[in-house]
Amino acid sequence: MRRETELDAVRGIAALIVMFFHFWLIVPDGWKTHAYVTHMMGVSLTPEMLFHFTPLRLLVSGSGAVGLFFVLSGYVLSLSVARQRMTSYGRFIVRRIFRIYLPFAIVVLFSAALLPLVKTAPLHGVSDWFANEPWSVYPTEQVVAGHLLMIGTIPLISLDNPMWSLIIEMRVSLIFPILFILMEKYRNETLACVTAAYFCSSIFLNRLGENPPTTFMHSVIFTFEYLPLFVVGILFYQFRDRIGGFYGSTRPVIRNVIMPLAVLLLGTPTIGPENAVGIMKNLIWIVCTTIGSVSMICIAINNEKIRSFLQKSHMQGLGHISYSLYLSHMVVLLVMAYTLLDHMSLWRWGALSLPVCVMVAAVCFWFVESPCMRAGYWLTRRRYLKPELAG
Rank of each mutant, 00 (worst) to 15 (best):
G74L: 01
L109H: 09
I157L: 12
P371N: 10
Y36R: 07
M259W: 13
A82C: 04
S345G: 10
F110T: 15
L346F: 01
L205M: 14
L205C: 12
W285F: 15
S249I: 01
I291R: 07
V358C: 12
T250R: 12
I93N: 08
A262E: 13
M359D: 11
S88H: 06
Y226G: 06
L264F: 02
F130I: 11
L166F: 04
L352W: 06
P155H: 05
S249K: 05
E184V: 04
Y198K: 03
M170G: 06
R242H: 01
R171I: 09
C357L: 07
L191T: 09
A121N: 05
M49R: 13
Q311E: 13
P162E: 13
F110M: 11
F23Y: 14
T153K: 06
P273R: 09
V60Y: 08
W24I: 05
N206R: 02
P55H: 01
P387T: 06
I291E: 15
V231W: 11
V220R: 01
R207H: 13
P55S: 05
I97C: 14
R57N: 15
R207Y: 15
P355M: 13
P228G: 11
L354N: 09
L25D: 12
V76S: 08
G278H: 09
E388R: 10
V27G: 08
W349V: 00
K305L: 13
I154L: 03
D241E: 03
C372H: 03
S78N: 02
L115G: 10
A196H: 05
T153P: 00
W31Y: 08
I106Y: 07
N303T: 03
P355F: 05
A14P: 04
S295Q: 13
N303D: 15
